[in-house]
Amino acid sequence: HERALMVNRLQKLTRMLRVHPDPKWKQEQQELIKRLK
């Protein structure tokens, strides 16, 4: 369940980064990718 939330968050971040590349979001995205591996 928590994994699904993280995947959701990651997808949302990816969409937001396409619109507005924010370093903070980029960092969070990298963190999520690490944790999901």
Rank of each mutant, 00 (worst) to 15 (best):
H1M: 12
H1E: 12
H1K: 12
E2D: 10
E2Q: 09
R3P: 02
R3Q: 07
A4C: 15
A4D: 14
A4P: 05
A4T: 13
L5F: 09
L5C: 15
L5S: 14
M6V: 08
M6W: 05
V7M: 12
V7A: 07
V7H: 09
N8L: 13
N8G: 11
R9C: 12
L10C: 14
Q11I: 15
Q11F: 08
Q11R: 15
K12L: 14
L13I: 09
L13M: 01
L13H: 01
T14W: 05
T14V: 06
R15L: 07
R15W: 06
R15G: 05
M16W: 08
M16L: 12
M16R: 03
R18V: 05
R18F: 05
R18T: 08
R18S: 12
H20G: 02
H20T: 08
H20M: 08
H20S: 10
H20V: 06
P21K: 08
P21W: 15
D22N: 14
P23W: 05
P23Q: 05
K24H: 09
K24I: 11
K24S: 07
W25K: 05
W25H: 06
W25P: 01
W25F: 11
W25N: 04
K26D: 03
K26R: 12
Q27L: 14
E28N: 01
E28L: 05
E28D: 02
E28Y: 04
E28I: 06
Q29M: 14
Q29W: 12
Q29E: 06
Q29D: 01
Q30C: 09
Q30H: 07
Q30V: 08
E31K: 05
E31F: 06
L32T: 01
I33F: 04
I33N: 03
I33M: 04
I33V: 05
K34Y: 06
K34V: 09
K34S: 08
R35M: 11
R35W: 12
L36E: 00
L36V: 02
K37L: 13
K37N: 11
K37F: 14
K37P: 02
K37W: 10
K37C: 15
